[in-house]
């Protein structure tokens, strides 16, 4: 499709975002919108779930919302 591949949902990309600042699941989903990656909603959810489990980021409650982040 013409719009696919603009953004890639990779471990490296997730790692980069979480190293910059704490993010909620919704923040991460915004970075990997389906219209930018060309992935389906299900594929996006599954990939992010697997990557987050593998990266095992720190968790922090900010304004009552769970945020993930990675230390340098």
């Amino acid at each position: 499709t013409p719009n696919s591949g603009e953004v890639q949902l990779t471990e490296e990309a997730v790692r980069r975002y979480l190293s910059r600042k704490p993010m909620t699941t919704k923040d991460l989903l915004k970075k990997f919108q389906t219209k930018r990656t060309g992935l389906s909603s299900d594929a996006t959810v599954n990939a992010l779930a697997q990557l987050l489990k593998r990266l095992d980021p720190e968790r922090k409650l900010i304004a009552d919302k769970m945020h993930f982040f990675l230390k340098e």
Binding site: L28, K30, S41, T44, L48, L52
Partner: peptide
């Protein structure tokens, strides 16, 4: 749409249930 984003966030959080 924002409702699709909400659904995806809910699905992702469900996948991460044990983890979170």
């Amino acid at each position: 749409s924002s409702s699709e984003a909400d659904e995806m966030a809910a699905a992702l959080e469900a996948e991460l249930n044990d983890f979170m």
